[in-house]
Computed example of a mutant assay.
Amino acid sequence: MIAPLSSDTLAAAEVCFAVASWLLYVEPDISSVAEQVASRQFASAPFGEESDDARQGLRFLDGWCAAALRASEVPEGASTDSAAAFLGESPAFAEAVAELRREWLRLFVGLGTPEASCLESYYVEPNRHVFGKNVIAVREVYRRHGLEVERLHREPDDHLGLMLGFLSRLIAEEREALDAGEGQRAAALAGEGDAFLTEHVLPWLAPWRYAVERHARTGYYRGVGAFVFGLIACYAERFGICFDGEARAFRRRK
Rank of each mutant, 00 (worst) to 15 (best):
P203M: 04
L107M: 04
L152F: 12
H153Y: 11
L178V: 06
R143A: 15
V201F: 05
L111R: 10
V149Y: 01
N127Y: 15
E125R: 13
W204T: 08
W204S: 07
V141W: 09
D158I: 03
L147T: 02
T218W: 05
S117P: 13
A195G: 06
P156L: 04
G161A: 04
V130Y: 11
Y122M: 11
E176I: 13
E120P: 03
Y123V: 08
L167C: 12
D194R: 14
A216W: 00
H145K: 09
W104E: 04
H215W: 03
L167W: 00
T198C: 10
A206G: 00
N134K: 05
V138P: 04
G112S: 15
R151A: 12
A216G: 02
R139S: 12
D157W: 01
V149K: 02
L205M: 08
K133A: 12
R106P: 00
A195S: 12
A216I: 02
G191L: 03
A206C: 11
L100G: 03
R217A: 13
Q184R: 14
L205E: 08
E192F: 09
G183Q: 09
Y123K: 09
E140G: 00
A177M: 05
E140S: 14
H215A: 12
E103N: 05
A190F: 00
L197Q: 05
V124T: 14
A211E: 09
P126R: 14
E173V: 12
D157M: 00
D179S: 12
L189M: 01
L100F: 05
G161Y: 02
R175T: 02
P126G: 12
H215P: 01
S121D: 05
W204V: 08
V135Q: 13
H153G: 00
A172T: 08
A186K: 06
H159S: 04
L205G: 08
G146D: 06
A180M: 03
